[in-house]
């Protein structure tokens, strides 16, 4: 043993550097714990493994979508046409994009939505794909229309020919 024949004091003197090292490690650990305490939000873990304050941050973000009911309030012609066809369950903003800015504006015509890019929009759902149910209407667009836009034949709000 290293302290054989010596005293405990000698042993401590000869392992002084290790005590210093332990002090450095403990100091490092304390600094880490202090930083941790300072950085973790107070109410962390109240409802789960997250900070409840994050919910307020999310709540403060502007709302992008107006909602189906808001669209119908003004565009009742399109709404009726849509409700009678196979797109009845596709929300307006699914194709036209988020329209809260348009709907909430004092003058909605100043925030006029852009018309969707039909060439790509329809394909997102109706391009032929083996993974889709067989009864779902789908075509190989390159062969189907010969490059013509979908809405030159189909009415998007009520897509019969």
């Amino acid at each position: 043993m290293p302290w054989k024949g010596g005293t405990l004091r000698q042993f401590f003197r000869n392992s002084g550097h290790l005590i210093r090292l332990a002090a450095v490690l403990i100091a490092g650990l304390c600094v880490f714990l202090l930083i941790r305490t300072a950085l973790i939000p107070k109410a962390f873990g109240k409802y789960g493994h997250y900070s409840p304050g994050a919910l307020d941050v999310i709540r403060q973000r502007p709302v992008s979508y107006a909602g189906q009911d808001t669209c119908v309030m003004c565009h009742d012609g399109e709404a009726k046409e849509r409700a009678s066809g196979r797109h009845a369950h596709v929300a307006c903003e699914a194709c036209h994009g988020p329209q809260a800015a348009h709907a909430n504006a004092d003058d909605p015509s100043a925030h006029k939505p852009r018309l969707p890019d039909v060439a790509n929009l329809c394909r997102r759902c109706h391009e032929k794909d083996a993974a889709k149910p067989a009864h779902f209407p789908q075509v190989v667009t390159a062969e189907h229309s010969g490059g013509a836009a979908c809405n030159s034949c189909h009415q998007p709000h009520n897509p019969h020919l």
């Binding site: 010596g6 000869n14 210093r20 450095v24």
Partner: peptide, 19 residues
């Protein structure tokens, strides 16, 4: 890097070796 300890006596090196 010495952490202020210049003790490299044989006894301290034996302890180092064991640790």
């Amino acid at each position: 890097l010495t952490l202020g300890s210049m003790n490299v006596s044989p006894a301290s090196r034996v302890i180092d070796d064991k640790v």
